[in-house]
């Protein structure tokens, strides 16, 4: 065998013609080490079980939902009414309000977060950064239910003051969207700041050396170089906004409605799941199964966004040596 070498333990012994000692240089199996490694592998495998569990649970209950006589797949995706009481299950109103909240949130968060990121990466001095970073982390660390409280007790009254009480309802999509925007701003700010800081300083120096101003350097050299990171950050934030529950559950209202008016109440997918499962939900009812069908749609929307964001980072990242 190749690795069972014959080794002379002592050259003189070989010369003397003594028996040549055989040494096995193969790694000796250690039972203890193997057991530990197996246990650790099992720990890692739990994440696979989690994914399988999510897909299985959502899929199985959704199948039951679609197998029932009250709903068909086509109706589910085309009907614009969600009224479980009268047997109308069209997910469009829920998806529509989710998208409205998300778009309003992104309209707040992308300019705000990006501006913060550019300021921190290009303009701020060390001391200002040392102050701003923890503040942004603080914003990111506040529980979402607190943001929900803020939306309902501060932003909504403020909106009603500005636009009038007949225009803006107590529960409305606008307030929820604005606050979700504040909630995802730290995500865009920190992730974009990472991307901007990763741009090598040689590019900045070259641009400044050619006579560009600091702003021109930032917006025409650094931001394009970090563009993939910024887009990825926005997509991650978008997926977060879609999955956000507490703010919309508190501020966006509790009636599924197909409307494009942001000042009317409209329940989102997450808000509906939270409301339906908040009561004592009995299993084997169409309500119980329906939230899993919504959950499945939600899961695929966020999963797709996350995968796309990773793909963008990998595919379009500008690599500088």
């Amino acid at each position: 065998m190749a690795d069972q070498l014959r080794v002379n333990s002592d050259p003189r012994a070989a010369l003397a013609g003594d028996a040549v000692k055989q040494v096995d240089l193969r790694k000796r199996p250690r039972i203890g080490e193997t057991i530990i490694q197996t246990i650790l592998y099992a720990c890692g495998f739990i994440s696979i079980f989690t994914t399988i569990g999510i897909v299985y649970v959502l899929g199985q209950e959704s199948l039951r939902f679609f197998a029932s006589d009250e709903v068909s797949l086509v109706e589910f995706f085309t009907n614009t009414v969600w009224q479980p009481v009268i047997g109308e299950f069209g997910i469009l109103p829920l998806v529509n309000s989710t998208m409205m909240v998300t778009i309003i949130a992104l309209m707040v968060a992308i300019p705000l977060g990006l501006a913060m990121a550019i300021y921190m990466a290009e303009y701020a001095s060390e001391r200002v950064r040392a102050f701003l970073k923890p503040v942004i982390e603080l914003l990111a660390g506040i529980p979402t239910v607190v943001y929900g409280f803020f939306a309902l007790t501060f932003v909504t009254p403020w909106l009603r003051e500005i636009f009038g009480r007949d225009v803006v309802q107590i529960y409305n999509v606008m307030s929820a969207g604005l606050v979700v925007g504040i909630l995802i701003t730290p995500i865009i700010a920190t992730l974009s700041e990472d991307a901007l800081s990763a741009v090598p300083s040689g590019l900045r120096q070259a641009s400044l050396g050619l006579g560009a101003t600091k702003w021109e350097t930032a917006i025409r050299v650094v931001v394009p170089a970090a563009f993939s990171g910024i887009v990825a950050a926005s997509i991650v934030a978008m997926s977060r906004a879609i999955g956000e529950t507490m703010v919309v559950a508190l501020a966006a209202g509790a009636s599924p409605q197909f409307t494009f008016n942001p000042f009317l109440p409209a329940e989102t997918m997450t808000g509906h799941i939270a409301r339906i499962s908040g009561g004592d939900l009995s299993y084997q009812t169409i309500d119980y199964n329906s939230i899993f069908a919504i959950g499945l749609v939600l899961f695929f929307m966020t999963l797709t966004l996350n995968i796309v964001s990773r793909m963008i980072v990998r595919r379009f990242r500008e690599v500088y040596e």
Partner: peptide, 13 residues
Amino acid sequence: NLSGVPSIIYGML
């Protein structure tokens, strides 16, 4: 990918 799944989905799981 799991770290991007909305928390309410974990609740349903």
